[in-house]
Design a protein around this nucleic acid. Sequence first.
DNA 1: TATGAATGAGTTTTCATTCAT
DNA 2: CATGAATGAAAACTCATTCAT
Lengths: 208, 208, 208, 208
Amino acid sequence: MLPAGQPKFRRRKADRPDEIVAAAFEVFGEKGFAAARLDDIAARAGVSKGAIYLYFATKEDIFQAVVEQGVAPNLQNLAALAAANPQNFPDLLRGVARMMAHMASTTPLGGIIKMVVGEARNFPELARVWHDRLIVPALGTLTAVIAAAQARGEVQPGDPRLYAVSLISPLLVGVIWRETFTPIGAEPFDLAGLMEQHVETLLRGMVP
Amino acid sequence: MLPAGQPKFRRRKADRPDEIVAAAFEVFGEKGFAAARLDDIAARAGVSKGAIYLYFATKEDIFQAVVEQGVAPNLQNLAALAAANPQNFPDLLRGVARMMAHMASTTPLGGIIKMVVGEARNFPELARVWHDRLIVPALGTLTAVIAAAQARGEVQPGDPRLYAVSLISPLLVGVIWRETFTPIGAEPFDLAGLMEQHVETLLRGMVP
Amino acid sequence: MLPAGQPKFRRRKADRPDEIVAAAFEVFGEKGFAAARLDDIAARAGVSKGAIYLYFATKEDIFQAVVEQGVAPNLQNLAALAAANPQNFPDLLRGVARMMAHMASTTPLGGIIKMVVGEARNFPELARVWHDRLIVPALGTLTAVIAAAQARGEVQPGDPRLYAVSLISPLLVGVIWRETFTPIGAEPFDLAGLMEQHVETLLRGMVP
Amino acid sequence: MLPAGQPKFRRRKADRPDEIVAAAFEVFGEKGFAAARLDDIAARAGVSKGAIYLYFATKEDIFQAVVEQGVAPNLQNLAALAAANPQNFPDLLRGVARMMAHMASTTPLGGIIKMVVGEARNFPELARVWHDRLIVPALGTLTAVIAAAQARGEVQPGDPRLYAVSLISPLLVGVIWRETFTPIGAEPFDLAGLMEQHVETLLRGMVP
DNA sequence: TATGAATGAGTTTTCATTCAT
DNA sequence: CATGAATGAAAACTCATTCAT
């Protein structure tokens, strides 16, 4: 991560905002927006409270940066999904599901989702950003793929948008479960296994 | 300020706690725990701030009451599920799905789920109550029904717990969607329609 | 206490104020004025909070009644002291000391003293009532007795007012000790024994 | 509001806690714990209310600091008492009395005593600190000195602990008087003169 | 009279934001 | 740029007092 040749423990100023956002992401994810304290964020970022205000004007601005920054990496995956070469439909769906399960397992998607869901009423703009920039395109792409398969006769009749929701829902629920109930000792779900069984079952039901 | 002839005091002790919980439910559902102000709850309940403290010792206690009160009504539906006469498996599943969709459409389940998910880290006890009293029994009953059908050869092999999650996930996602994105103008989902298509598709994939 | 012929458990209205004052005395004595809650007083008096306001206009009024009522019984003892037939001086002093020790042991004098001392700054009027009506007369009478004995040559030269303070101080300290340190497990003082030894010693030093 | 040129912030972290405790001591001494307002303490310390919470978590903590800080300076005097070279008993007692009278005249002992006595029921821990760390050692040392003198035949038989109380009581009463009745115009006592006459009288009664 | 639910002003406590250093 | 002590507005909580019953 650090540029080669830079002293290892000399933090570059340019990294500060990202470090703050990263720390803020953790704290917001754990406590929610209102319950998160600037003190905590500063401590976790290893900076003073005052330093945060060199980069962000208000607590809200930090939150916006966190949630908006959560959109970006997923957008790339979305592009990859759209560009997937469409072999046959079942394999495409399997590939998509596997990719999403991997993404869900390796990124802090759960924290982001909690924030967006929990603070949508207080920060409608954030909900809008997520809806417009990520969810609608992703759902739209998946819906289009399904509709195309229907047109080719590879998928049973039915609302393709609902098929898309059917497909991804267990992943979302699994991620939420991980954030909500696993910390209190609940039995966790294996996301990959869940999605594999789910997709196989759904596929058997979707193909004619 | 007060309309002439309106008594300043009302004296309806028996009703008050419920009124306060109802108001608190709304405010917590809109703002989350930390951002909710006692003033708002009091105003919405039509009482003074002080009156709240006649019935609840702290803000946390109100929140507990709200979330715990959300468990009870669902428990009845759970009992109904457990007592369903098992005719054939597909019809049983269809009945369950229809019942849950109806419940999700007519109760403020979404608000409760948002609260439980959003505040689980801050109030693990609440997550535990929901997990132990509602989710595990519900998921367990559904899992048992599926496992029984598997034993009778009516359902394909596979982890019955994962089948159960597959089944109910779109409902949860639909409810969350309603709370999160519908308020900003997103296209809503018809929960009943979503569940119907989902269950039919899944059933075709589950039966041998 | 109750008039004969009255049903035993039928409380007479006329007793209410006294019962309230008695309860208030306990609570004020334990908590001090500001920390005492009307709820506690009402509960201990066995009346409703509202009932208190039928007899007292404010919390301060109750406090005044408590402290002023604490003056009265002591005034009688003061009169007795003044009227004591003066035999010889040592026996007079012994009698006075014994009487005061008995009084201190059988009345809640400690609580009253704590109140007067603790709230003198907040309620100077109360300090004034106690000073003018009880302390100055008592100290004056004692001083006069000592001065008279000096005039008869029965007591060494010296400021008779200071002799008076020397005489009664251990009693006050003993009472304060009882209120302050005995409740936390400190070794108590036997007031009668303390005063007896004190007076005998002092007498040996006072007489020529 | 602020005079031009006055900085709004002061930055004197090291001094602050002591300034706050000093201000709190005054306010608690005047009003008692419950009636003291944080606003007053802050104003008297010349800081904002919020600044207090940088150093003390609760109002109780401030009070504890105040009362515990009152123990320390007296401990030194106690050590001096214990180390006094015992010449002959009367001179030792005279020295002790003079030292204590001086201490009582130059330190805010009266305020502290009022607090400890007035709040002992509400804060038993404080009473315990004072009892264990100051009063018992002091009384014990004095008692031992008297007992030793008795063993040498320099003091009449009698309970040495009671003799000790006899000795110091007028000082305590004088200090309490100063706090309670002098502010309302009562005739003050000259503590030094009181103790001198008291000790001389008592000595004449104590020696055989 | 008596009750006790209800009020609302007042107090403690929190914390985003500012600013002297 | 960076710090963190200090601020002050806002929020939770308390409780003397009121008043419909």
